[in-house]
């Protein structure tokens, strides 16, 4: 890929991540600007410190915002904003291996 193609690929992910951050801040009424959340930030436990009630709220929000139902997914979906982006926009995941184990 050329540099411009790489920038376009990165921009697609950044856009989805920005949409997710905006949704999280709005739905959970967090007192921060969406851009303060980083793409690699864990969402649960240490990180954004969301709890299981927040998960339920996010399931509903994600379905409404992205048309994707994640109810049966494992917790790794919420491993980070960028990981969540792979699930709400599968085109991103095709390009991004996510490790193993």
């Amino acid at each position: 890929m050329t540099l411009d193609e790489l920038r376009a690929t990165a921009a697609a992910r950044h856009d989805t991540c920005a949409q997710i951050k905006k949704m999280i801040v709005s739905r959970l009424d967090l007192p921060i600007e969406p851009a303060w959340i980083t793409d690699d930030q864990p969402l649960f436990g240490r990180g954004l410190e969301l709890d299981s009630l927040d998960v339920l709220e996010l399931y509903v929000a994600i379905e409404a915002e992205f048309g994707v139902a994640l109810y049966d997914s494992d917790m790794s979906v919420f491993g980070s904003v960028s990981r969540l982006a792979d699930h709400v926009n599968p085109a991103l995941a095709e390009r991004a291996p996510t490790g193993s184990a």
């Binding site: 890929m1 540099l3 790489l6 920038r7 690929t9 990165a10 921009a11 992910r13 950044h14 793409d39 690699d40 864990p42 790794s76 491993g79 980070s80 960028s82 990981r83 982006a85 792979d86 991103l92 390009r95 991004a96 291996p97 996510t98 490790g99």
Partner: peptide, 22 residues
């Protein structure tokens, strides 16, 4: 503008891929 997962880049002489965490 290039700090994102899913990009194939070259580190030294090796091809690498950027990742989502964890």
């Amino acid at each position: 503008d290039l700090a994102a997962a899913g990009l194939t880049l070259t580190v030294g002489d090796t091809e690498v891929v950027t990742l989502t965490s964890p």
